[in-house]
């Protein structure tokens, strides 16, 4: 009986959490569409989420592009590796690694920061103060962060694509002696617009997930400093898992048709 009760309690908690998250997402979407829209706060969040994430995303994609080039070169040396390194690096970076690794890095940085900030506001009653000052916390706190992250992530992914491909180019031309002009030409010839846009669509969804998880976990944090710490951890873990799950779903949808 205790075993069954434990299973029951687990599922009840799971469904309660799912329901609360769904309501939270619904309230946020409604807040995003209804005026007033806080353009100034959106601008500030674009700087914090987008601009300050650039170094992390750039370094990650550069080294990933380089490592990918090495793997493909040695893994495919029985084939014509010079021909395939450029194309597979370009394809791998734009379709998968740019948006996914960029998303995971931004999740670590931004979800945690959002959850800590909003969580601290929750436990110090600043969110209650917003409400009593006739300001909707979803509009003032959540919507600007979600809009900013959703707008910034495709731009970050595009930058990650360019720098990742450049990483592969540097390794290919400097370590393996590939001809630079031919490498660039093959990359351009092989890549299609769809490869890039599919990655950018994914990145926009990842941006939405990152901000939403940060805001949700921060908004419902309780129990002082420990609660804020727990919210921060949960935000990063849940955002990372959802990014990988959403990536699988979107890859299935975008490339199976």
């Amino acid at each position: 009986m205790t075993f069954l009760a434990t299973i029951g309690a687990f599922f009840l908690a799971f469904f309660a959490q799912t329901g609360r998250l769904s309501v939270f997402v619904g309230q946020t979407l409604a807040a995003m569409l209804r005026p007033p829209i806080y353009f100034r706060i959106i601008g500030q969040q674009i700087i914090r989420i987008g601009y300050f994430s650039l170094p992390v995303v750039a370094l990650t994609s550069f080294f990933t592009g380089g490592a990918l080039a090495i793997q493909i070169y040695y893994g495919g040396n029985q084939f014509n590796s010079e021909a395939i390194v450029s194309s597979i690096v370009a394809l791998g970076i734009t379709r998968e690694l740019g948006p996914v690794l960029g998303g995971l890095m931004v999740a670590g940085r931004v979800s945690a920061a959002i959850a800590a900030e909003i969580g601290t506001m929750r436990v110090t009653e600043q969110i209650d103060a917003l409400t009593t000052l006739s300001t909707d916390p979803h509009k003032y706190l959540v919507a600007p962060r979600v809009i900013a992250a959703t707008l910034c992530m495709p731009i970050l992914a595009l930058i990650a694509d360019i720098i990742g491909i450049f990483g592969g180019f540097v390794v290919g031309t400097q370590s393996f002696g590939f001809n630079a002009a031919i490498y660039v030409q093959r990359t351009i010839n092989f890549l299609t617009v769809d490869d890039v846009t599919s990655g950018l669509i994914k990145a926009a969804v990842f941006g939405f997930i990152i901000a939403m998880m940060g805001c949700y976990n921060g908004y419902y944090s309780k129990g002082g400093a420990q609660g804020v710490g727990r919210a921060t951890t949960n935000a990063v873990v849940s955002a990372s898992i959802l990014i990988l799950a959403a990536n699988y779903l979107m890859t299935s949808l975008l490339f199976s048709s």
Partner: peptide
């Protein structure tokens, strides 16, 4: 509640000022 909230002021225990 908007018009009710407009006529209300609140001092929270720790001030709850926006950092």
């Amino acid at each position: 509640r908007a018009d009710i909230d407009h006529q209300i002021g609140m001092l929270f225990q720790n001030g709850a000022l926006f950092d």
